[in-house]
């Protein structure tokens, strides 16, 4: 590896700042969890933000390891969701980050490739992140009931999450919004950041 392809202090700093923005995007999108139905749009909404941040970050720090560091704050956030879930969440994010790194390992300057990588990257939210709702539906709903959520809602949710094609819809819609996010990110770059001489 050439010397200037290695991550150094300034790259870690940029990644840290973007990682926090990513985290903020996740917290904002958590508004979706306000009802059991809209919760399926949570990854869809995060996808837009991640798409924007991902493209800009990859152009700013076109180096191996940027995505892993970018994922670190959200990964820690997952880690704080309990022993078992936390570990799965943490490992899941990191796994997808590594897959994405591998996809971009040859060419860090190809915007299309970066966009594809971004779409793959957000898949962890729509697959792993939604697995609890769609695969372990009954455990999930029983748990919600035990925590004191209204029974009518839980039963509605149970039948809702048993519609498995919905999961496919979530995955596809997240992929689409992430792609849109990358387009937006590119637009912002050419319209603002490059023109202002910041990037």
């Amino acid at each position: 590896m050439k010397e200037n392809e290695k991550m150094i202090g300034k790259d870690y700093i940029t990644c840290g700042v973007f990682s926090l923005l990513y985290m903020v995007a996740m917290l904002l999108s958590a508004v979706m969890n306000i009802s059991g139905y809209t919760a399926i749009f949570y990854p869809t909404l995060v996808g837009i933000f991640v798409g924007i941040l991902f493209v800009i970050l990859e152009v700013k720090v076109p180096k191996k390891g940027a995505v892993v560091i970018f994922s670190i704050i959200p990964a820690l956030y997952f880690f704080a969701s309990g022993l078992l879930e936390g570990f799965i969440g943490f490992a899941g994010v990191m796994l997808f980050a590594l897959i994405t790194e591998w996809m971009m390992s040859r060419r860090h300057d190809n915007l299309n490739q970066i966009s594809v990588a971004a779409v793959v990257y957000t898949l962890y939210m729509s697959t792993l992140g939604m697995a609890e709702n769609f695969v372990f539906t009954d455990t999930y709903c029983d748990n919600a009931l035990a925590h004191g959520i209204n029974e009518t809602i839980v039963e509605q949710m149970r039948s809702f999450y048993h519609i498995k094609p919905l999961w496919a819809a979530v995955i596809v819609s997240t992929a689409i919004t992430t792609w849109l996010g990358t387009l937006l990110g590119k637009k912002i770059m050419s319209k603002h950041l490059k023109k202002a001489g910041i990037l």
Partner: peptide
Amino acid sequence: YLVPLLISAIKTSDELSAAAITRGID
């Protein structure tokens, strides 16, 4: 909202980096 936020995030990280590396972070 988004564009000024992104611009300032990038500028801040650049200025922070400059300050950090002149103090030997690497």
